[in-house]
Design a protein around this nucleic acid. Sequence first.
DNA 1: ATTATGAATTCGAGATTTACGAATGATCAC
DNA 2: GTGATCATTCGTAAATCTCGAATTCATAAT
Lengths: 302, 302
Amino acid sequence: MITNINYNHLYYFWQVAKHGSIASASKSLFLTPQTVSAQISALEDRLGKPLFAREGRGLKLTEFGKLTQHYADDMFAIAEEWLETTQSDTHNQVRSLKVGISDAIPKSLVSKWLAPLIDNERITNLHCIDGQQAELLAQMATHKLDLVLADKPLDSSTPFKVFCHELGRSQLGFFATQELYDLVVTGYPHSLAQCPVILPAKNSPMTNALHYWLNELNIEMTVAGHVDDSALMHALGQQGFGLFPAPIAVKAEIEQRYDVHFVGPIDNVYQNYYAFTPDRLIKDAIYSEFVRYAQKSGELPA
Amino acid sequence: MITNINYNHLYYFWQVAKHGSIASASKSLFLTPQTVSAQISALEDRLGKPLFAREGRGLKLTEFGKLTQHYADDMFAIAEEWLETTQSDTHNQVRSLKVGISDAIPKSLVSKWLAPLIDNERITNLHCIDGQQAELLAQMATHKLDLVLADKPLDSSTPFKVFCHELGRSQLGFFATQELYDLVVTGYPHSLAQCPVILPAKNSPMTNALHYWLNELNIEMTVAGHVDDSALMHALGQQGFGLFPAPIAVKAEIEQRYDVHFVGPIDNVYQNYYAFTPDRLIKDAIYSEFVRYAQKSGELPA
DNA sequence: ATTATGAATTCGAGATTTACGAATGATCAC
DNA sequence: GTGATCATTCGTAAATCTCGAATTCATAAT
């Protein structure tokens, strides 16, 4: 007689796999290690193969264990969202938010957007991760993220349902170290020809818009490099690697944090901001709250 | 003290929600109805709200129950795939396959491709569903499908990892009822101008290629309509609604089933076939087997 | 209207599972 | 070697799961 899988055992396994040890997992489960150990053994017996290899005084996932963890990750991410969205008492609503932030977006802008929600105590548990837009959307599809922030809209052909909200936009400007600043500040923007620039990824909307602008003005610049990550771009800029573009909305933060100066604006070149939310109705309240806040604070220098 | 969720209870709930009644679910769980009923009640107590409304002598999901079922669907779809891919004994491998088939693909081609796997007894449990490519890929991402067949490749920007395999292609030809056939068969393809045609969706690769071909030959045709679903297109064609294009690879089936005649080929216009598989390693064996079979049988009239 | 049938449920008792304390090994840090 | 940390084994107590019998209720049959 083949018995059913005990999904509680799988839950215990998942906790152990996450924590890396029975001892630590048993604490967070409010159980004793013996218990957890026994349940894991029961699951292994049921499955016919070991999930962990006993190594030294600890455990190590077997290949089969790793695979199982992967599946369990996906499963319990859904379960957690289910509980979060259905168990939170009606007037206190959801209290946690997992946000994916595209590399291209300045972090200081994000914290500006999120600040009202945190100040309000609407959210007590914020979890942010970085990454590329496509990766983040994939994680949202599998319930591992609630919200994705990015600087490009979505080609309509995305397989799964996501909603795309426009948050606003900010004009771009060039920033540079003192040394470079002195070099180009007079005669801007035509003086730009004198100096290398760091640009975002090729074919990113920002880069394209920039090239168009330079073309219009008949300026030929030296491209020092293309960098995907905005934080890295700023850091390189700080080293004097070249001028770099950044949204004017965060001028103050950029100047202060990276010890650079604002050189000048880039006419008609904007970075747009979008928020993506999944096709789930329950967290709606917090979604719309976020979007509303962000759009309001997003009325940035035109 | 807030207790943990018992995921076995959730599993019982899921079964009941699927079967529509405790009586039926309890059979498939090899338990008695009292037991299942009690476990469901326990879960409802833990969650604080009822999952079912007792209605007459049966059960009906509450709104909360429906939502929960939705989450449970997603969770246990993953669990089932996990068990299927890890529990199947090593040399007998996987025996079930869930295939999503894009509307645009002629079903007779699909059955040709799948036949070897079924004849071989490699697969004993085949589940096919129809739909639009994007929808199907979304379902694959959430583990509800193992394989998707479609007629267009994928823009690289798909958020999640899928592998795209080229299966082959078939030249297209026009088909028509006897009456229309008589009208256009002489002087083909220029005679096409005399007769309305049914085309696939606007902007589908097939439609674009067709327009290009017609343009080249300087033929102006009347478009009777655009139809997404290949089966529907054939049915309309059978009614004499107009000529319709179809892959020559299934000429015989089309002629026989829809009682139409092959009018003539369309030069340099092909329908391409692609198989999409998810980023999961375990079902690899059956995937590659399928792709190999399909590619072999896909060497179609050039 | 009365009787059956099919469904969910309640109750109580027994079987099973789960959980813990105590004790045992095994490993690591010192 | 000593003490600390971790997983595990064993035996037992508590919780739970499960089932049979009986109950309730709504529908179906007569």
